[in-house]
Nucleic acid binder design. Structure first.
Lengths: 126, 126
DNA sequence: CTAACTGTACTACTACACATAGTACACCTA
DNA sequence: TAGGTGTACTATGTGTAGTAGTACAGTTAG
């Protein structure tokens, strides 16, 4: 199994799974600045999906300023990991807020939240 | 504006907004055990949406054991708030886990997470 | 120059979920 | 009996996702 994977049964569309996946690879340093991404046809072949779907993901990543594409050459990672880190951080905070609101409505106490957080933070092994 | 609201522009389908909405009303005690829900046609009229959409939401809630429906009488809240609280709690924990993983990948430290949690928990005014 | 690779841009088609619209039926209650 | 309830259909429209195929422009290695 390659670095990038995809699940057609997921509710989340494939192109969005791809963008999330690539963002993670960049954040973790597996994909460095100016490093070339696999071609749309190559990656489509490996994942057994349509090249158009890859192209859509790349276009979205370019729109977000995370990668840049050059006709005839390929697609490459932008040198802006910190920017990406910032937006991901904001998104995570927002999702955290939503989850906490839900937990609050489910009757979880503040102390339980802290305990749960410590626990999850410790078992981050997947 | 009534207790139940809906946003057609939201990514989340209307029937799912409805189920989430009603679950919250039950958790907060606004809807008590055996209390009758508004009729599918009534609620559809108030929200200016189709009765079928309400029926779909009610069917889903019944499938999850949160409400029960009787032909000719109406739909009513099940006497199982604790069960609902438990599942909501589990879902919240799962969403919390996802958000924390994302935060970790974005380079947030454990201390920042705790601080952020305290902050969000305090500003829970919306 | 040529061949083979890149991204990009189309069109056409299928599939599915969502939502609406309308109708109909069975059941309950005042 | 009349009017309320849930339930079950069919039909239609819409939007998104994904596939399939083709074509074109640019780059690169030979």
């Amino acid at each position: 199994m390659g670095i990038i994977t995809v699940d057609t049964r997921d509710r989340k569309p494939i192109w969005e799974q791809l963008t999330d996946n690539i963002k993670l690879l960049i954040l973790r340093g597996i994909l460095g600045p100016d490093e070339q991404l696999p071609g749309v046809r190559t990656l489509a072949g490996e994942l057994a999906i349509n090249p158009n779907t890859i192209a859509k993901a790349y276009a979205e990543l370019e729109r977000q300023g995370i990668i840049y594409s050059i006709q005839g050459r390929g697609s490459f990672v932008c040198d802006n990991v910190e920017g990406l880190r910032g937006t991901q951080r904001n998104e995570a905070a927002e999702e955290l807020r939503e989850a906490l609101k839900k937990a609050f409505d489910a009757g979880v106490s503040r102390e339980d939240i802290i305990k749960m957080t410590e626990e999850i933070w410790r078992d981050k092994n997947d």
